[in-house]
């Protein structure tokens, strides 16, 4: 009888202890998975995944809001991450606007510096890009006004 009571007490104690240990095991397993995920994330090569290409819709919004500086940077970043016009024709207009902006800066700078021969190449890029803008041709005029503000 006494043995029975002692046995039941011991069973209850070890039951509580086992539950606590089981909870500790579950928590440690969870921590292990999180740590492993962090390790995989930190050692994964970042090639091609640092920025991620911007969708064409976002570039169109940049264009409409006159954020040409940012547009120019995203255009190059996108293309180097594989989002070319050949693969994704939706990028034709925003890339054309970015090319026009860059070429306009170069063209105006060379003209103001007196290098008309050097400026000619940039003019060709501007003409080509303007033609690709389609309904957004007003953007080219906007860029011309922006670049010409510095006399």
């Amino acid at each position: 009888m006494a043995n029975n009571k002692t046995g039941k007490r011991q069973d209850k104690k070890s039951g509580v202890r086992d539950t606590i240990l089981n909870v500790v095991i579950v928590i440690l397993t969870f921590i292990l998975f999180i740590t492993a995920a962090i390790f995989v994330g930190k050692t994964k090569p970042r090639v091609g995944t640092l920025y991620g290409p911007e969708p064409a819709e976002r570039l169109i919004i940049m264009l409409q809001r006159g954020r040409y500086n940012e547009l120019m940077q995203e255009r190059y970043s996108n293309e180097m991450l594989g989002s070319t016009v050949e693969k994704y024709p939706a990028y034709t207009v925003p890339y054309a606007a970015a090319d026009y902006y860059e070429a306009a800066i170069d063209y105006n700078g060379y003209i103001k510096a007196g290098d008309t021969a050097g400026a000619a190449g940039f003019k060709k890029i501007m003409d080509r890009s303007r033609a690709a803008l389609g309904e957004y041709e007003y953007v080219a005029d906007d860029i011309d006004a922006l670049v010409a503000q510095s006399k």
């Binding site: 090569p45 970042r46 091609g48 920025y51 190059y76 180097m80 991450l81």
Partner: peptide, 12 residues
């Protein structure tokens, strides 16, 4: 010039 810069960036 910009193409080279962003190529380096994209490919680390």
């Amino acid at each position: 010039y910009l193409g080279l810069y962003y190529y380096f960036q994209a490919n680390r």
